[in-house]
């Protein structure tokens, strides 16, 4: 159960990024999570609800995009997507695969922010 530490890192990173958008509030945080990232979405969502209270992220939604494991198969000379994480064999030729292309991602892809309408000084400096 390290999801609370992970969520705390998300809150810290987003709060840091938000400094570039004064007056803006966060409505959504989008994550990319690989099948081998060792985090459970239920726990993430549960911890997220707790961790965002009293922060600039309060009331925002957490959207998780799950990414399957993609390995390179030298025999087939192409990247192949695995159905699960119970076997690291090429689904086409059966070769055991060691070269990973995707699957360990644990990233904040983007945030959705709401900014004050034009004309209100809070919008100043909203360029990254």
């Amino acid at each position: 159960m390290h999801e609370l530490s992970i969520v705390q890192s998300i809150v810290d990173s987003v709060t840091e990024s938000l400094a570039r958008y004064p007056g803006a509030c966060v409505v959504e945080v989008r994550l990319r999570v690989g099948a081998l990232a060792a985090v459970a979405e239920d726990s993430l969502q549960f911890c997220y609800g707790i961790a965002i209270e009293g922060t600039a992220l309060a009331g925002s939604r957490l959207a998780v995009r799950h990414l399957p494991v993609v390995m390179h198969c030298a025999r087939c000379a192409r990247d192949v997507t695995l159905e699960g994480v119970q076997s690291f064999r090429c689904p086409d030729c059966g070769e055991l695969l060691g070269e990973m292309r995707q699957g360990r991602e644990l990233e904040i892809e983007s945030i959705g922010i709401e900014e004050a309408p034009a004309g209100i000084p809070a919008g100043i400096g909203d360029q990254p």
């Binding site: 990024s17 990233e107 904040i108 892809e109 945030i111 922010i113 309408p117 990254p128």
Partner: peptide, 17 residues
């Protein structure tokens, strides 16, 4: 209010890494 999407593409465990 309009929602704007800001790309971050940032590792969550960046500090640890």
């Amino acid at each position: 209010m309009t929602t704007r999407i800001v790309e971050l593409r940032q590792g969550i465990l960046k500090k640890n890494d």
